[in-house]
Design a protein around this nucleic acid. Structure first.
Lengths: 248, 248
DNA sequence: CGAAAACTTGACCCAACTCAACGAACGTGG
DNA sequence: CCACGTTCGTTGAGTTGGGTCAAGTTTTCG
């Protein structure tokens, strides 16, 4: 997807990865009406408990995360989003936002009216299926996070998160020169893995000493994804890279 | 749903809670072909990595859980299922099972052929929407579990799990006399909360001393759900009890 | 009735947390 | 373009919640 492609081409790419689309399906997606919008770093796209918005947002560039905050304060990051991801498909049907969504970087989105998307899904079964499959994959990713948070030690946990991030960036076409820059602070990594930022700091130092990650002044990069993957017990099956229809 | 109701009435009840259904929709669900099947305690309904089965299973009675096992051994329970739950909607579209599903008790299910369910969804948009919403709610529940596992202490974690279980049992019509019997061993509770069975044991003792749960010889029951809820920071919003369409 | 599964308890340990201080980079406004 | 507040990262010292190990008891069920 080059810079001069229309924004909806990013959505076509995403949905095509969730199910086979005919040329007419792709044309219909490209014809969707939308409004682009830019969010600054740290700004909220939605907040838990708020009434659902009347549109769904597709990430065009930048990164975002979903998170929830407990009564006593600590926050848990529950999802990460990048180019092509649909941030809030829930808005199609649910009344209230079930989490916060916040920009991790400067973020460009395309907003699609709920009714336009529902109409498209009603007319084009293949598109409806791709959207549905996308929510199934989201749930699968969530299960994988539960395992990560609940049953792995800090080192493996952080490594696993980084592997998932890199793998998804590659799938989204965001790998540049084989390296991956992770757009998260140590505190955010901690919030996504159920650790404190202090411990994430120590864990990253350890990973860097083994050459599994590369740390610059204010960024974190991955180079040797292979070695990191085996340390992380990373098996990308749960990301459902191959979604072609099961044999009848 | 009384004992003499047809098995598919359980599915009707479930889907009606996920979106408004017309009388024709309900009739079409009741007309679905199915095969009932019984699983013994501890038997597996599906295994991670296996090719997806050609049918979806609806729980008629009993309980099941989904779980994943890490390379090093520890297991994480990622979902709980009871009467009315659809165990494996993924089978409609995905090629491989992304987790294990195992019976917690003796379990009766109705198996519906994938193609029959897809055909129903294609013909009846309201049913398709209810099924889709069901997967959205599953994902929402998963996020709530991440918070529980990642950011709460043992006592709150266990209490939260019990509250969710009781709340869902009530929604499924399984509350008898206001009490709830939890069909999980302490080890399974540990696997669902990211704790060890030893620590679950101590935690339950503590909850029982405060009168928040009631323990018999080999079962665990909840009586004072209100007090337990506040100790657990339990907010049932994420279970989406009220799913009526958002205003246009 | 015997074996397996589930529960219980105690003693000890350690991975990760807390607290605290400081330094480096960023960005914003004057 | 510099000053200064804010965010982010780093490191050390001390603590603790929950894990580990191990032994024994109770319950279930074939």
């Amino acid at each position: 997807v080059s810079d001069i492609d229309p924004p909806m081409a990013i959505l076509v790419r995403k949905l095509a990865s969730r199910g086979a689309l005919a040329a007419e399906d792709e044309a219909a997606i490209l014809a969707l009406p939308y409004v682009t919008r830019t969010y600054e770093t740290r700004s909220y796209l939605m907040r838990e408990g708020e009434p659902a918005k009347r549109f769904c947002s597709v990430v065009l560039s930048g990164f975002a995360c979903g998170h929830l905050i407990t009564v006593r304060g600590p926050r848990q990051v529950v999802s990460l989003h990048m180019s092509g991801d649909i941030l809030n498909l829930q808005n199609l049907f649910l009344k209230q936002a079930d989490r916060n969504v916040q920009a991790l970087t400067r973020l460009d989105t395309a907003e699609i009216e709920r009714e336009a998307l529902k109409a498209l899904a009603a007319e084009r079964p293949a598109v409806a299926q791709a959207l549905w499959v996308d929510t199934l994959v989201d749930a699968s990713v969530g299960r994988s996070w539960m395992v990560n948070i609940g049953r792995r030690d800090a080192r493996t946990r952080v490594a696993h998160l980084l592997c998932e991030f890199a793998t998804r960036m590659k799938a989204a076409g965001l790998d540049e020169g084989g390296g991956y820059e992770i757009p998260m602070t140590q505190e955010q990594i901690g919030d996504a893995t159920g650790l404190t930022s202090v411990h994430v700091n120590r864990t990253l130092r350890s990973l860097a000493q083994n050459g599994l990650v590369h740390r610059g002044k204010r960024y974190l990069a991955l180079t040797d994804l292979g070695k990191l993957s085996s340390d992380a017990e990373f098996n990308p099956l749960y990301l459902q890279p191959d979604l072609s229809e099961p044999a009848p």
